[in-house]
Design a protein around this nucleic acid. Structure first.
Lengths: 166, 166
DNA sequence: TTTGAAATGTTATAATATAACATTTAGAAA
DNA sequence: TTTCTAAATGTTATATTATAACATTTCAAA
């Protein structure tokens, strides 16, 4: 069974997002250092912009933000995102063509994502139960899993609650 | 536990793809009839083109094929695909921006997909074990699932075997 | 047979992503 | 310190995927 830490869950009212970002930044710094990669100003800025939202953000949205600091073109954003994806510092949500900050402080990995269709908040899981089920079912078909994409759309606890009140 | 029928699995050497398509076509006919929708020549043709491949196919690939019969433009393809998606006769693979024929002869539903990175073949699952794991993990986070995307990339049995022989 | 809603055609453009080559920069080597 | 080189970034153009908006056709119900 997965034992989810508070990091895996949706943002609550008392969430301090600034320190949340700061922590993510420190961690990213560490990850880059460990892998001998440079966490340049640009990469740092893109990482920050993705984290800022705490919801999936499109590459061109990031670009718009970047352009407020000066000129920038799509390859700039995509290169930074590719770098961050490579190190597992952000993830891509295929069904939304969007990017999210990775919430795990570890090695590159693939997660599973819960995405609220109402408020767009997301949570990242790394649920052993889901991975196991997928691996088992694949194995039953003689299939070798290399990578999986799991994107779960629905309602987060807060939005669910506010719907019920109506 | 899911009890997979042969339809859910990868194509084998003795697979008769023409009769496979024909069966899918008859089924689609039935589905349209039951839902009071028209299975027009165009829709039938697009459905056939998607099935023909037995691998994920892009909208613009479908378009190219269509254009061999005469003039055609993107909206024509996308409208037909949207129609087929709506009825659950094809599925979209978000991580590939591509479409596959649906292998289930039933109601609209969401499946899980195994996709071979080597030969591009796919298999569709509707595995209760995966769905249950997803629902359970979501529920643990207080999340209500409306829809899930599960796309599993790796090696199909045949490609796995041929790799091992090397 | 008319007629109106559904389907398709047509043109233009939006949104997402990458190719190709030029320039800059940061850090290792001399 | 200076030089040099690989990595990073800038820049321009374009590929790929998808949709908006409006015109025309078709087909089945009245």
């Amino acid at each position: 069974m997965a034992t989810p830490s508070h990091h895996l869950h949706f943002i609550s009212d008392d969430h301090d997002h600034q320190s949340c970002i700061a922590a993510a930044m420190r961690n990213a710094e560490q990850v880059c250092q460990n892998s001998g990669q440079r966490f340049t100003t640009l990469r740092r800025r893109v990482f920050e912009l993705v984290w800022q939202q705490h919801r999936p953000i499109g590459a061109y949205e990031v670009l718009e933000q970047l352009q407020q600091d000066g000129r920038a073109a799509p390859p700039t954003v995509y290169r930074a995102l590719d770098f961050l994806l490579e190190l597992g510092l952000v993830h891509r949500i295929a069904s939304l063509n969007a990017y999210v900050g990775c919430i795990h402080p570890h090695q590159p990995h693939e997660g599973q994502f819960l995405i609220c269709e109402s408020c767009k908040a997301y949570a990242e899981l790394d649920a052993a139960a889901i991975t196991a089920a997928i691996n088992q079912c694949a194995a039953d078909s003689g299939f070798v899993v290399r990578q999986h994409t799991v994107e779960i759309m629905g309602l987060c606890p807060r939005c669910k609650e506010s719907r019920e009140k109506q």
